[in-house]
Amino acid sequence: MDGDELVRDYLGRLEAASWPLPPDRRAELASEVREHIEAALAEAGRRDPVTIHNVLERLGRPEEIVATEADAEPLATRFTDELGRRMPASVRSWGAIEIAAILLLTVGAFALPLVGPAMGMVLLWLSKVWTTREKLVATLIVLIIFVLPIIGLLAVEGRAGTGS
């Protein structure tokens, strides 16, 4: 990895780690860090991989920089949704819909087989706390565990059908 690649990799990690920050602050932080790297390299008078590596090491891990920034952000503006809009902290915490969704997916599965988890899925998609990606992952988990036993059941029935 040459020097420029090291810088690109570092800025890429910073970008990836900075998702909890508001979009404008994220861009500002990336720009500040890039300027800081350029200034340090100009001061060093060299751009070889070892110098760049040392500069990046002095800066610290991107995740640590973002954590420091996130702590400085007011809680209400810390999180953004998948469209980059700021969300108040209250929207990101537990509410009646979230608790009901979790209960229906777990206890509801025993009290109301099939109907309980189905209602839980509806509440999951109505909730504004989880992002669309998180909702998709949860839905996929449910579907995969639903589908696998059904395929197994069909296979058993198919075998019984051909066996008799």
């Binding site: 537990w94 989880w130 998180e134 449910v142 036993p149 296979a155």
Partner: peptide
Amino acid sequence: MDFDVVRLLIPLAGIPAAIFLIVVLVRRRR
């Protein structure tokens, strides 16, 4: 696969999803 096993697995499908959703919320609040 035994039919009783399938009947047991179907209600359990929501539990891993619920665990995932709880973990997401707990990690976000830290």
